[in-house]
Simulated assay, not measured.
Amino acid sequence: MKYNFFLNFIRKVAFILLKCIFFIRVEGKENIPEDPFIICANHRSYLDPVLIILIFDRKVYFMAKSELFRIWWLAPIIKAFGAFPVKRGKSDIGAIKRAIDVIKSGNILGIFPEGKRNRTKEVILKGEKGVATIVKATGAKVLPVGISGRIIPFGKIRVRIGKPIEFRNNTIDNQEIVDKIMNEIKELILK
């Protein structure tokens, strides 16, 4: 699904403004598949989902922490761009079902498998298993995305889009799936 004219206009203007503030380099756009897929990216900044929304031309439906939907001015904006709430810290069956529906409807799902922003000195945090449940239920490809750089004025930000990963064997352990995804993201960051 594409963004409507109004949202697409906002995306274009926002991208121009961000490029005036940061040096943004995007690599690997040729790796973006045509069929429905799951974007899995690392999460260090509030800017991460914005970058993904601006880079991908098709609408990305993000799982976003439910607390964001309680902020009166932010909730309508993130809903318009396709975000839906997930309760962190416990299994949110409703959010998992919604994520599966997004993929089965032919759309793109965006997930930060770390489950929260990484505020440590580690390159990447351990991933949560929810993404593996969605992968097994849908058979969707996973598109790893590594975001690196400094979120300061005139800082360099690099977004590297990796090659899609397919998990054809449904008997693979969920942790194995998550570890494979996280390792791919980490390699994209460190290259």
Rank of each mutant, 00 (worst) to 15 (best):
Phe62Gln: 10
Ile100Tyr: 07
Lys90Cys: 13
Ile38Gly: 03
Gly89Pro: 04
Ile71Asn: 12
Arg70Leu: 12
Val60Ala: 02
Gly94Asn: 14
Ser91Trp: 08
Ile39Val: 15
Phe56Trp: 05
Ala80Ile: 10
Leu68Phe: 14
Ile55Thr: 13
Leu47Lys: 04
Phe84Lys: 03
Phe81Gln: 05
Ala41Trp: 03
Gly94Pro: 03
Ala64Ile: 05
Ile96Arg: 02
Ser45Ile: 02
Ile38Lys: 09
Leu47Asp: 05
Leu51His: 06
Ile52Gln: 11
Ile55Met: 09
Arg44Cys: 11
Phe37Ser: 07
Arg70Trp: 09
Phe69Thr: 01
Phe69Asp: 01
Phe56Gly: 06
Trp73Gly: 12
Ile71Tyr: 07
Ala80Lys: 12
Met63Gly: 08
Lys59Asn: 06
Phe56Ile: 15
Lys90His: 12
Ala95Asp: 00
Leu74Tyr: 07
His43Leu: 08
Val86Phe: 00
Asp101Gln: 13
Ala41Tyr: 06
Arg58His: 11
Ile100Asp: 00
Asp57Phe: 08
Lys59Trp: 07
Ala83Gly: 08
Ile52Arg: 03
Tyr61Ile: 11
Phe81Lys: 08
Leu68Ala: 05
Leu68Asp: 06
Lys65Asn: 13
Leu51Pro: 08
Arg88Cys: 00
Gly94Ala: 14
Phe69Cys: 03
Tyr61Asp: 12
Ala75Trp: 09
Lys90Ser: 15
Val86Leu: 02
Arg98Phe: 02
Tyr46Gln: 09
Val50Gly: 01
Val102Leu: 01
Tyr46Ala: 10
Phe62Cys: 09
Lys59Ala: 10
Leu47Trp: 05
Val86His: 00
Ile38Met: 10
Ser91His: 13
Asp57Leu: 12
Leu54Trp: 07
Ile39Tyr: 12
Lys97Val: 14
Asp101Gly: 09
Ser91Arg: 15
Lys87Val: 10
Ile55Tyr: 05
Ala83Trp: 07
Ser45Asn: 13
Lys79Ala: 11
Ile71Trp: 11
Asn42Asp: 03
Ile53Gln: 12
Phe69Met: 02
Ala83Asp: 01
Lys90Asn: 13
Glu67Trp: 01
Gly89Leu: 06
Ile39Pro: 11
His43Tyr: 07
Arg70Val: 10
Val60Gly: 01
Ala41Gly: 09
Ile100Thr: 04
Leu54Pro: 06
Met63Leu: 15
Leu47Ala: 05
Leu47Phe: 08
Ile78Met: 08
Ile100Cys: 04
Val86Tyr: 00
Lys97Tyr: 14
Arg98Trp: 01
Val50Arg: 00
Lys97Asp: 14
Asp101Met: 10
Leu68Asn: 11
Tyr46Pro: 02
Val50Ile: 15
Pro85Gly: 00
Leu51Gln: 10
Met63Asn: 10
Ala41Arg: 04
Phe56Pro: 05
Lys90Gln: 15
Ile100Trp: 10
Ser66Lys: 13
Ala95Met: 04
Ala99Pro: 02
Phe69Val: 02
Ile55Val: 14
Asp92Leu: 02
Ile78Lys: 07
Asp48His: 03
Gly94Phe: 06
Asp101Leu: 11
Arg88Gln: 04
Lys97Ser: 14
Val86Gln: 00
Ala75Val: 12
Trp72Asp: 13
Asp57Arg: 15
Phe37Asn: 08
Pro85Asn: 02
Leu51Ser: 06
Ala64Asn: 03
Phe81Ser: 06
Ser66Pro: 01
Ile38Glu: 08
Ala80His: 06
Phe62Asp: 03
Gly89Val: 08
Ile100Gly: 01
Asn42Cys: 01
Val60Glu: 01
Ala80Asn: 08
Val60Tyr: 01
Asp92Tyr: 00
